[in-house]
Design a protein around this nucleic acid. Sequence first.
DNA 1: CACCCTAGGTTCGGT
DNA 2: ACCGAACCTAGGGTG
Length: 292
Amino acid sequence: MFLSVTQPLDLAATLFSGQDFRWRHDDALGSHGVVKDHLVALRQVPGGLEAWSPGLGEKALTSLLRWHFRLDDDLERIHAGLSTDPVLARAVQRHRGLRLLRLEPWPALASFICSSHANISRIAQMVEALATALGRPLQSNALVRHTFPPPALVAEAGEARLRELGLGFRARSLAAAAAVVAGGQLSLEALAGVPLDEARRRLITLPGVGEKVADCVLLLAYEHLDAFPIDRWVRRAVEQWYRVPRGWRYEAVAAWAREHFGPYCGYAQLYIFQAARLGPGSFAKGAGDATV
DNA sequence: CACCCTAGGTTCGGT
DNA sequence: ACCGAACCTAGGGTG
C-alpha cells in the first residue's frame, strides 16, 4: 500500500540512526524490519512510503507506521523551535527528515542494555541473534524475521545462552534485568506516565542500566521528549560546539541541555548525535577529509 | 597474518 | 561522592 507522508521523512537516515536495531536493508525488498511483532517492508517513494506487511490491513498498517515514525509530531514546528540555536539549525537543515522513532519498552530496554561499549552494527547483530534464537518466526515467502523475545524467555535463556549468542559481558546484565521484569519486581507498563526523574530512578535499579541507557528508553519508549541521552558522541559534541566544560557530570550536562534546548531536547540530541557521527566537522575517523 | 585498538556504558573497587 | 579500570567480541587499522 501507499502511505502519504507530508511530514519531513528521510527513511534510510531514520531507520539506521541507532534508535531501532531491527531494520535491515535489502536491494530487492527495500528495508524490512519488525515492529510490534509485525514484519514490515518499506520503500521511500515520492510523497510518502510504499509499505507492506503480511496479515495487516491498510488501516492497521497505517496506524502502526504513524506510531513507529511519530508522524503526529509536527516536525516542522519542532525544527523551527530548535533552529533558534545556530549550531542546531545547521544540523537540522542537514539532517532534515531524520525522525525520532517510537519503540516498545521491553525491546528498547533490552537493545540498549546490549548497546554498552558497542557500535551500531554490533548492537544490531546482538539484537538479531536474540530474536533469531528466542523469538517467534515471522515468515513471508523467502523472508524470515523474528519477533523480539519477551522478558520471560530471555530470563529463561540465562546468561550462558546469551553469551553463546554473542552478547559478551552484557549477557549477565540482560539475563538479570529480564528476570526482574519477568518476575514483576519492576513493571514496564506501570512506568508509563511516570515523571522523568522517578521513571529514571526505577529503570536504573536494573542491572546493566545506567543513566544513558535509561534516558534512551525514556526518550524512545516512554514519550519523554525532554530526556537527553548523553553518549560519548553527544558529550564530545556539546563540549566542542557549545563549550560545555569537560568533566561535567552526566546530570549536569543533561540539565544544561534541557535549559538550553527546551522541552524537545530529545530531538535536539538526535540531530546532535547524527551530526557528530556524520559530519561535517564530524569526530568520526576519516570523515573530515571526505566531507569538508 | 598476527597484533592492537576501539566501539552509543556499567559496575566495582579504591580514594 | 569522585575517578579509574575491567569487561566480551567483532571489525577495521597497522606492522
